[in-house]
Amino acid sequence: MAYSDKVIQHYEQPRNVGSLDKNDESVGTGIVGAPACGDVMKLQIRVEDGVITDAKFKTYGCGSAIASSSLVTEWVKGMSVEQAMKIQNSQIAEELSLPPVKIHCSVLAEDAIKAAILDYQQKQGKPAVSAAE
């Protein structure tokens, strides 16, 4: 299967690989997927005054999964929590030109950012902001 240029670019030069301190009050961590399914994403955000100022990821998975998480960390930096909550997997799939068999990678990236936001909100003791359905 041929990968799109954008997937290859993110795979070869992933943005924001790494970890933030998960015990930090301003950091939200989302871990989604399962090793048995062949992909696990860990996505972390740092939130300051309602704005995501930093994002890091680590992904075990195929090139499309790595690219999806790399792309999302790029996108969310500078976004408000509310904006980030509205990221849809279809936007990720479109940006990376993912073929149908790789759509689940973009779903996982969407789940990862939502999970990270939820974790952050729970740390703040705030009710979860639900995604705009």
Binding site: P14, V17, S19, I31, V32, G33, A34, P35, A36, C37, V40, M41, K42, K58, T59, Y60, I66, H104, V107, L108, D111
Partner: peptide
């Protein structure tokens, strides 16, 4: 270096004890 599983193993976490979210 990019794998969250590798990171967990380096931190001494037993992966079989984690509640994963299969999709």
């Amino acid at each position: 270096e990019m794998s969250p599983l590798w990171e967990m193993v380096q931190d001494g976490i037993d992966l079989s004890t984690i509640q994963w979210t299969p999709h």
